[in-house]
Design a protein around this nucleic acid. Sequence first.
DNA 1: CGGTTTTATGTAATCCATTACATTGCGATG
DNA 2: CATCGCAATGTAATGGATTACATAAAACCG
Lengths: 354, 354
Amino acid sequence: MSAKETSRKRQGDKGQGVDVAPQPARVRTVKEIAAIAKVSVATVSRALQRPEIVSEETRRRIHEVVKRLGYTPNALARNLRTARTRLIVALLPDITNPFFSEVIRGIEQVAYENGYSVLLGETQSNLVREQAYADMVAARQADGIITMFHRVPAIPIDGRLPLVNACEYVKDSAISSVYVDNVAAASAAVDYLVTLGHRDIAFIAGPSLSPICVDREQGYHLALQRANIAANPALTAAGDFSIEAGERAVELFLSQGQSFSAVFCSNDEMAIGAMRALVSRGLRIPEDVSVVGFDDIRFSRYTSPPLTTISQPKNALGREAMTMLIEILNDPEVPPRKRVLSAELVVRGSTGPR
Amino acid sequence: MSAKETSRKRQGDKGQGVDVAPQPARVRTVKEIAAIAKVSVATVSRALQRPEIVSEETRRRIHEVVKRLGYTPNALARNLRTARTRLIVALLPDITNPFFSEVIRGIEQVAYENGYSVLLGETQSNLVREQAYADMVAARQADGIITMFHRVPAIPIDGRLPLVNACEYVKDSAISSVYVDNVAAASAAVDYLVTLGHRDIAFIAGPSLSPICVDREQGYHLALQRANIAANPALTAAGDFSIEAGERAVELFLSQGQSFSAVFCSNDEMAIGAMRALVSRGLRIPEDVSVVGFDDIRFSRYTSPPLTTISQPKNALGREAMTMLIEILNDPEVPPRKRVLSAELVVRGSTGPR
DNA sequence: CGGTTTTATGTAATCCATTACATTGCGATG
DNA sequence: CATCGCAATGTAATGGATTACATAAAACCG
């Protein structure tokens, strides 16, 4: 390219006469396009933004130049001027967790339908990272943010904040959230185990910092109460949503000599870990122990036996979250709200009669 | 806050005298900060960018105002002016695929060490989406891009392009890539099966558009050749990397009455599907059929039996990709290069002697 | 045909921060 | 004491688009 340039001492030889510029070859701007197309910058901008208000002839000419030179408007300049980016950031603690992927798909569908793009940020539950991404909104690099964990980063924007909390929720009523009724879902799962005749039902909890986990535990207790079963505290173990945590919990129960015929887990990954630990101890699923998970991630269909679990409406959660965010973006006056969806039990092979 | 505001009819009562402005409450700009701190905009900018060149006293005053008003500089304006964003976009076809998550972690580590932030884009192998994200670079919303699929979107930036292709590669030598030696890895996997005494080894291929899949297939054939085994074309099936594809492939082999004692799969998810199909037909793993995957995703450790697979250096792939991208960003002159890492076989329970 | 819209385009202000260059004040040096 | 250098700060240009407002030409109308 630079070789070509030096050899092009005599310019304007490529037809058209004088208007073939010296081809500065660097990055293009509206100005250049305007000069080459022999119109003003305003017209170029219009031809690109609202083609219908530019005359057929001019529009064609401008588009030809734009295409020929491979011009892409500088989005920073545009966004600076218009004070909007049409970008939203979706934050999730862990992209590995298949639960989120469908939620994201829901977010992206609605975003796309409304002319927004979605960028993902993985926070690894790290407060600093959560804040760093949230700052993008304050710094005007994104219009809004959807968070999928139980903390809400501060966004120092006066007026209300363009944030929706999805899948989780925080008590603060100023924060819009979309999530499922975890108490109802968890108790439905345990109800089902009770129906199957189980009475010694273990529970593997999730991180207790997260309100949804507290709710799931509450649902578990609620169902036991309804069935007049006294909860055995030794049959509840704390976990952190990982496969390993599920394994450890079961090891713990077994090593303590606890007897139980069913385990309800706060998420599918822990259920997978639990199943693994049970099998490695020679127990059969579901003949000896029934296992129920929560979330219905894609892999839960492929465990052996396939996992009975609570299926969250993942796509709907995402769609709803994005819809709410767009509402907020369009009208800062809309009050924050909590939207609660319902989840349903999916019975597969990991549960059976006692 | 708004309640407080309305009650603050008489302003300036909070000490300091006249300089406590009427609190315009809208978005802050350097100008406002400068006015309140009684300095010029240049000094404010300096106090924030290079504090050391501003006098102790002034710096303190400015920082106080910045903090008090919750001022965040407009990143669009900054990036526009400085022509860099310190943002890079990492594109992956499918966030569900656990293979990528570790790669991304590697990317983020190096990015962070160098002051960059990473935004993720899921393309779902959709050309339009790939291009849309890539356009962010052309539009100056991001400095560079790492792609994790086998197509390279066009980025109409004159000069070289700030793009690194990771995990996959394209033939084009103008594109920098980081990937593993798939031929060697695949043949090592098959060599191992041969060592175990297997001779009827089936192969489930990945998308043939992807060069790495072609390489894996080539590795398979290479190993067979080395062992003087004639390849049976009926024992090769096409797949698309999904669990379902693995199931279908095995169903196909079995329904055709093919006899085989081992299956080598182009990725772990297909291997999981294959195992599932084998088990549901009553075959035991590894007693009746050995299964080998590729990638070593997190779940492969938790299948039953645990999957023998090729472990890609996922973190290193990510780190290396980001390192290369930073090199390119720092010096546009560095020539593109292909970096090939090696992968190793991890033997677990899904393989056994014939 | 004069006057009023409408359509197409241009001029210049604007968005907000960064930074080159200019200015000021002060201590150091000869 | 004049001069120089340096430190601290200010002034104004700049980045690249969008768009309010202005203007010119064309279309319309009675």
